[in-house]
């Protein structure tokens, strides 16, 4: 069984690959760094794309832009917590 740390790393790799982020390695993303705005600088379209990718990969259901989704995408750790609690595959 994967540890929480492994999952956070996996999520970071997933984000980097899904968004084709140049020059970025998982070590560059702090577990609690904000993914949007000044942190990684992702935008609303990215969260949509990430959401779709996460649903496919982990069998999640993420509803459209709500206050809750903003919390889910707050950081790599928040995302990993959500995936761990809600994954179906």
């Amino acid at each position: 069984m994967a540890t929480q740390e492994d999952l956070i790393h996996e999520i970071k790799v997933f984000i980097i690959e899904a968004l084709n982020m140049e020059d970025v390695t998982p070590e560059d993303i702090g577990d609690d760094d904000s993914l949007f705005g000044e942190g990684l600088g992702l935008d609303s379209i990215d969260s949509l794309e990430l959401g779709v990718g996460l649903q496919k990969r982990y069998g999640l259901k993420i509803s459209a832009e709500t206050e809750e989704t903003r919390k889910i995408f707050a950081s790599a750790r928040a995302l990993a917590d959500y995936v761990a609690a809600n994954r179906t595959r």
Partner: peptide
């Protein structure tokens, strides 16, 4: 690192540009 520098420029632009 380049990524830190990118982030530096982005944060300077943050309040003048639409995130998109």
């Amino acid at each position: 690192k380049k990524i830190r520098f990118n982030a530096r420029l982005r944060s300077r632009l943050a309040d003048r540009l639409d995130p998109l």
